[in-house]
Design a protein around this nucleic acid. Structure first.
Lengths: 141, 141
DNA sequence: CCTTGAGCTTCCAGTGACTGGAAGCCCTAT
DNA sequence: ATAGGGCTTCCAGTCACTGGAAGCTCAAGG
């Protein structure tokens, strides 16, 4: 198989497949013309990588998962550990994003978003207290 | 003010402040000895940047927010638009992470995580149906 | 005056995981 | 013979920093 076909079947772009070879994740053979010659196992590995990446595993995690996958003497605990750590990293990220979301959505709601320059979002970013409504005036609808 | 004091007061590391100058976000003056000489307004800007970055705005967003902040003729709608787009990007990211989290947590639960090699996580990544009982089905080699 | 050490300067390189583009070879069809 | 598409390599850029090296400046202590 040439790289184009593998790319199509694995869903991973040719550029990325070459990159994966560069960093040693796959080692396709070469045809006489210098083209990469992929076997079914290479395709299989790439599909594995694609799914692992889609779950957000880092390349280094993928490398480890792949070697565990190929190691018949692995202990599932090793795999589980990697997955659990990743899961907890995802949880952290979600929590962080939700905190941002919380703050930001309040600010967006508070901003009337019209032609006037007055803006609670900027006020908050500039360090003023945004939540305190000054007695100055009523916001529009 | 030298960079060290500004770093401390703004919470932004010196390296980052220099980087922000590089990309034109702040333009401190220079003392005779070549040291950066920050004014209060520079400090103010850096604090603004720190808060905007903490809300996840990209550097380009920050640049735009900063120029709106300094533009007395701005319309709050412009600010709101930037914030809304960012908010929606955050929502997308949260959704994506939650989907990963969902899949991954099921897999982690399903994996007994002991000394045996059998592992539903790897099985899933390799493309097999994770819920299926073993059927020996080896793919082509 | 000299030394020491902290703080400042610049520039270069690396991070993660690709992605775009240029220059050029290979293969097939017409 | 030529045209096109696919393949090759290598270089550079992305994003937002961060680390480190080499070297200058400044204030304090001996």
């Amino acid at each position: 198989m040439n790289i184009g076909e593998v790319a199509e079947r694995s869903g991973i772009p040719p550029k990325t497949i070459r990159y994966y070879e560069d960093i040693g994740l796959v080692r396709p053979q070469r045809s006489g013309n210098g083209y990469r010659a992929f076997r079914e196992t290479d395709l299989h590995k790439l599909a594995f990588l694609g799914r692992a990446r889609a779950l957000g595993f880092s390349i280094e995690d993928c490398r480890n998962l792949l070697s565990l996958y190929e190691d018949e003497t692995r202990e599932s605990a090793q795999v589980k550990t990697i997955a659990e750590e990743h899961l907890s990293a995802i949880d952290d990220k979600i929590a962080q994003l939700q905190e941002m979301r919380e703050t930001l959505s309040h600010l967006v709601e508070a901003c009337h978003g019209d032609h006037r320059p007055d803006c609670p979002i900027l006020k908050d970013l500039s360090g003023a207290l945004a939540g305190c409504k000054p007695t100055t005036g009523r916001s529009a609808d």
